[in-house]
């Protein structure tokens, strides 16, 4: 387990205005600053002589002195919620837990670089207090978070505490990255995202190519479910591998539908390797 931390920075953009007093890079509802034009207001509402607009003053009826008002730019809280159920310990083309740790660290890195606070909540069947990272803007938080996740020991099978993660968040709208493989029951997915309705949720779906794409071509294999312990016999052959692929394509579409229905952003699917550039593109494009 190589724990050298190579930070990958991605950029994110909000399509909502944050309520924050902390200076930062995101649009807020707070009046002030000189970046986001908000509108014209009477001088007495914003008595800043540097923003007096003569044209707006002349346009006003009855005439009064108008000034340009702006929205402040502020910092937000960025939280990574990590699913640590047994299935997240799958190792195929890559180790899912390592991938999750990398992504969490990358989020922490990107957030703190942008002046935002970062916090980590890990869940299995209970909230993992030992892995909890309160909101902070410390510089070293990314590496710390990565080490924490890499050194965590699996304690439970499921991910039933995911809906409880919302209780660990502050009431103000935050940007929440939900890192999971989404091999969960549909009701749990919906419940989790619904519980985070106050926040801007970006589901990050971790899938491994060994799960459904790079399957052995021929042969008989028995697989056991990492969470439920159930068994399945698979006589792999081209027809079955096609079926598995199409089942995963369906599952993918289903996850997208569920997330969007529950009010989250379009999920971002990560296979084997985390590419921050692609995530940036996804976050800047999709809503």
């Amino acid at each position: 387990m190589n724990s050298t931390f190579i930070p990958q920075e991605f950029h994110y953009r909000l399509h909502w205005r944050a309520r924050t007093a902390r200076p930062g890079g995101h649009p807020t509802r707070t009046a002030g600053g000189a970046a986001d034009f908000r509108g014209y207001v009477p001088f007495m509402q914003n008595p800043n002589p540097r923003h007096i607009d003569l044209r707006a003053s002349l346009r006003s009826v009855p005439h009064q002195l108008m000034v340009r008002s702006y929205h402040e730019r502020g910092a937000i809280a960025v939280v990574a919620i990590v699913d640590l159920s047994a299935s997240m310990h799958f190792a195929g083309a890559s180790e899912k837990r390592e991938l999750a740790a990398d992504i969490a660290a990358s989020i922490a890195w990107s957030a703190t670089r942008g002046g935002d606070a970062f916090g980590l909540i890990a869940c299995d069947d209970s909230l993992r207090g030992d892995l909890f990272e309160p909101l902070s803007s410390r510089r070293g938080v990314a590496a710390e978070v990565r080490d924490k996740l890499m050194q965590s020991t699996p304690l439970a099978k499921g991910a039933n505490a995911l809906p409880l993660a919302a209780s660990q968040l502050r009431a103000k709208r935050s940007l929440v990255f939900l890192i999971s493989d989404f091999h969960l029951e549909e009701s749990l997915i919906t419940q989790t995202i619904t519980s985070l309705a106050a926040h801007d949720v970006v589901p990050l779906v971790l899938w491994d190519s060994a799960e459904y794409e790079d399957l052995p071509k021929w042969g008989w294999a028995r697989v056991s479910d990492m969470e439920t312990g159930g068994e399945r016999s698979l006589f792999l052959r081209p027809r079955l591998t096609e079926q598995i692929k199409s089942a995963y394509a369906e599952r993918r579409a289903r996850i997208v539908t569920l997330c969007k229905q529950a009010g989250a952003r379009t999920p971002f699917f990560i296979q084997d390797k985390f590419n921050a550039e692609l995530l940036t593109r996804h976050l800047l494009e999709a809503h």
Binding site: M88, F90, K96, E211, V223, D225, M226
Partner: peptide, 8 residues
Amino acid sequence: PYPAIANL
């Protein structure tokens, strides 16, 4: 070990 046989 397989993450989720329900998908199979």
